[in-house]
Amino acid sequence: MIPASPGGWARAAGLALAGVLPFLLDNNYVFHLLAMSGIYMVLAMSLNLLIGFTGLFSLGHAAFYGLGAYASALLTQDCGLPFPAAFALSGLLAAAFGAAVGFPALRLRAIFLAIATMGLNEIVRLFLTNLDGLTGGPAGLPGIPEPDLWLVRLGQPRDFYVAAMLLAAGTYLVLANILSGRPGRALIAIRDDETAARSIGVDVTAYKVAAFGVSAFFAGLAGSFFAHYLTYISPDSFGLSESFAIIAMVSLGGLGNLRGSLWGAFLLCSIPEIFRSLQDFRELIYGLTLVLIIRVLPDGIADWRPLAARWRQWRSGPGLGGEGGGP
């Protein structure tokens, strides 16, 4: 891809610089942080496809993430599949599961869809915890092989940093293409006005089911990558708190803002890590972020206009600000 404008070149240069910077630091911890950021970028972007672009409040994204992770671990450990095959298959399995779940869930109104997907997340976690024979139960699955990509074998955090960024970049390109193309526009149309979308020829159900499938596909890939990176997984990594963390990232970056999801994931991964003392408050930070964003910056950190408006209103003093606009 060749940047089309000076701004494009500047961005490309900035990206290249940001990509090279970690090598100058050459610090395994930094590499690890960025590898995890990459995984969360994929998760946040794929969830944004559902809640931000299609208006489907799916609150159990970690279910698809966990499914991908366990599928990939079992496919390599028990079935002896090479990593690339297990990686692709876990994406496809998660997609099939997502579409199968999406189908009945779509009959539900927004609030019930939210509750149902949260329930699904718990069900998946309970299955992973209780199917001891298959999943290792609460103790999890250790000894997952590191990715062997025929030519290169990923082992060092540095390798995973590069691979995670490539995965995030690939996901971004694919989703950006979809969103600027015919299917993506149909999703946004459904979000804006379902009746109008149907009345201009959109098969709303089919698109919603497909959106669930595609979203789950990328979550599954992220899960697979995660499993083979840490080489150990347990059900705790895929509970509701994980889903909420991803939702917080999506909200921070802005619902319906794909690039924002990259920032949301990066920031919410790094902040608790950079301030090591905050580690124990990870979930609290995610919760607070979510509440603050919804209250203060409903369009995410990329759009400060609501905050600026508030500031002006506050400056102009009470009485002049009015009642805070109704419709």
Partner: peptide, 10 residues
């Protein structure tokens, strides 16, 4: 539609 139904954000 009588009450106009566009895709508002588009």
């Amino acid at each position: 539609f009588q009450n106009i139904r566009l895709f508002g954000t588009m």
